[in-house]
Amino acid sequence: MTLNNSLREMSAMIELETRRLRHDRTEIYTRAVQPVMWLAVYGTVMSHVRDIPTNGIPYIDYITPGVLLQSTIFVSVFYGLTIVWERDTGILKRLLVAPASRYATLIGRAVASGVRGVVQALIIFPVAILLGVKFIPNPLYTIAAFLMLFMVAGGFAALSMFVASFMKTRERFMGIVQAMIMPLFFASNALYPINIMPPFLQSIAFINPLTYAVDAMRSLMISGNVASIPADFVAIFIFDILIFTLASISFRKIIE
């Protein structure tokens, strides 16, 4: 019964998010501009440097999984802003008075953000193909890669809501999230391999969930070297469980 309620709540949240997307697709397109620039401009320029050891993979191909993840995770990381906004209006109060568990509300929102992330990545994906990125033509691998993207996007949305439950105003929230974004992206293997980083950054990259997600997606989409895939999925799974739990516990705080 309770599980049923929770699933119902989650699916309602996912439906809400997809309906919102349907009414306003502009956001999805405009958000696709930046990642496409990363590939087309940064990728093209940097591919001429040839100093970054990519194991023989063309540089644009090398960074594509990272850029796909970056574009979705940045959406997720700011998802908490929706919650801050819903807190300022009465929506959150109302949801918390509905007969659904508060965990389900939070997890539903996080999952919904994951769905949004996948849609976002699906817009960039064909553009990458047009730019000449050679993906492994294995649909199973592609599906697994998008599953990884979905899991990590949901996790970061939960992280974002966790932050939102402490930083209850837009300004404070934006401040802290802006500060999180740079190390998140640059202290990961999204743009270059970890072993060329200084040791300090390496240790950050080691605990950065994005590193594992990039590794999995790069293996599944570009390199085909799937040996570390199970470990990557386990790492992200643990990250999700941990952050969903923490965010669920602190979610109550946001309305107080």
């Binding site: 809400l16 309906r19 919102r20 009414h23 306003d24 300022d88 209006t89 009465g90 929506i91 109060k93 109302r94």
Partner: peptide, 10 residues
């Protein structure tokens, strides 16, 4: 609640 509690973008 006192404040707006419906989603404006749907």
């Amino acid at each position: 609640p006192q404040e707006t509690s419906v989603w404006a973008d749907i």
